[in-house]
Computed example of a mutant assay.
Amino acid sequence: MLSKKTYTVHEATKKLEHYCAYQERCHQEVRQKLVAMHMIPEVIDIIIVHLLEHNFLNEERFAKTFVSGKFRIKAWGRRRLTYELKKKDIGKVNINQALAEIENMEYIEVFNDLAEKKANSIKETNIFKKRKKLIDYLLYRGWESHLVYEKASELIK
């Protein structure tokens, strides 16, 4: 029978320090990692407190990094970013601070570029189906519906 690897508190702490130093993590991801390492709840709390005290774990920093990365690389809108952060149990204050870091001009610019690129790539001849495909794509990406419908009407006539 396979025996599962066990960790001392010190080993687990070092492993989680490395895990958090490699990439920004939220509390939920760290807790899941510790549970997967078969740590008991008391030890999980001790390690999380240690990570917080030594600044390996910081939800505000995580939220800002997450938002800037997903916005710039995946071109997600504010609604999708908010939804994904809520799924990770990030607080409303941190979500709002992170979203506030996106400049409105840049936000609209990214949205327009994404919408135009997608509209040009849709090979549908029926304009209603083409408009629907564009709208579905942009809504899935988390862009606000008023922006999406306005842009779809503008691009596909």
Results as ranks from 00 to 15, higher is better:
residue 9 V to T: 07
residue 63 A to C: 01
residue 89 D to M: 14
residue 71 F to D: 11
residue 56 F to M: 06
residue 40 I to A: 13
residue 93 V to D: 15
residue 66 F to K: 06
residue 82 T to W: 12
residue 94 N to R: 04
residue 17 E to F: 02
residue 115 A to T: 08
residue 51 L to P: 05
residue 52 L to Q: 15
residue 121 S to T: 01
residue 134 L to G: 11
residue 129 K to Q: 14
residue 26 C to P: 09
residue 15 K to D: 03
residue 43 V to Y: 02
residue 115 A to S: 11
residue 46 I to M: 08
residue 14 K to V: 00
residue 18 H to L: 08
residue 87 K to T: 01
residue 120 N to W: 06
residue 81 L to T: 00
residue 51 L to W: 00
residue 72 R to V: 04
residue 46 I to G: 00
residue 119 A to Q: 09
residue 150 E to Y: 14
residue 41 P to H: 04
residue 153 S to A: 04
residue 21 A to D: 10
residue 149 Y to C: 04
residue 46 I to S: 01
residue 139 L to P: 07
residue 24 E to A: 09
residue 154 E to N: 10
residue 27 H to Y: 10
residue 93 V to M: 13
residue 67 V to F: 07
residue 120 N to Q: 14
residue 15 K to V: 00
residue 87 K to A: 02
residue 24 E to K: 10
residue 23 Q to D: 13
residue 20 C to M: 03
residue 67 V to R: 03
residue 136 D to G: 11
residue 30 V to W: 13
residue 118 K to Y: 11
residue 93 V to K: 15
residue 42 E to Q: 04
residue 29 E to C: 02
residue 99 L to I: 05
residue 124 E to L: 10
residue 136 D to H: 13
residue 157 K to I: 10
residue 108 I to N: 06
residue 150 E to M: 14
residue 132 K to H: 15
residue 105 M to F: 14
residue 83 Y to M: 05
residue 74 K to Y: 13
residue 93 V to S: 12
residue 107 Y to P: 04
residue 64 K to I: 06
residue 70 K to V: 02
residue 16 L to W: 00
residue 6 T to L: 07
residue 32 Q to H: 11
residue 44 I to A: 02
residue 43 V to R: 09
residue 46 I to H: 01
residue 123 K to T: 05
residue 97 Q to N: 15
residue 44 I to F: 02
residue 125 T to V: 12
residue 9 V to H: 03
residue 3 S to Q: 07
residue 24 E to C: 08
residue 67 V to A: 08
residue 138 L to Q: 10
residue 116 E to G: 12
residue 12 A to H: 00
residue 115 A to R: 06
residue 28 Q to P: 00
residue 114 L to M: 12
residue 105 M to S: 13
residue 146 H to Y: 15
residue 3 S to L: 09
residue 92 K to H: 05
residue 118 K to L: 14
residue 150 E to K: 15
residue 111 F to C: 10
residue 150 E to D: 14
residue 34 L to W: 00
residue 100 A to G: 06
residue 114 L to H: 04
residue 140 Y to L: 14
residue 51 L to V: 01
residue 64 K to S: 04
residue 109 E to P: 01
residue 99 L to H: 05
residue 115 A to C: 10
residue 8 T to W: 05
residue 1 M to L: 11
residue 133 K to F: 11
residue 39 M to Y: 03
residue 38 H to Q: 13
residue 69 G to K: 09
residue 22 Y to K: 11
residue 45 D to I: 02
residue 101 E to W: 04
residue 129 K to C: 05
residue 140 Y to Q: 14
residue 121 S to Y: 06
residue 73 I to A: 03
residue 109 E to H: 13
residue 102 I to F: 06
residue 77 G to M: 04
residue 17 E to T: 00
residue 63 A to T: 01
residue 153 S to D: 15
residue 9 V to E: 11
residue 12 A to P: 00
residue 68 S to W: 07
residue 82 T to N: 04
residue 157 K to N: 09
residue 60 E to H: 05
residue 126 N to T: 11
residue 37 M to Q: 08
residue 124 E to A: 04
residue 84 E to H: 01
residue 115 A to I: 10
residue 2 L to R: 12
residue 138 L to K: 06
residue 41 P to V: 06
residue 18 H to R: 08
residue 113 D to N: 11
residue 138 L to N: 08
residue 100 A to Y: 13
residue 93 V to E: 15
residue 76 W to C: 09
residue 121 S to I: 00
residue 122 I to T: 08
residue 24 E to D: 12
residue 35 V to H: 08
residue 4 K to R: 02
residue 9 V to F: 00
residue 49 V to I: 15
residue 154 E to S: 12
residue 110 V to N: 05
residue 27 H to D: 12
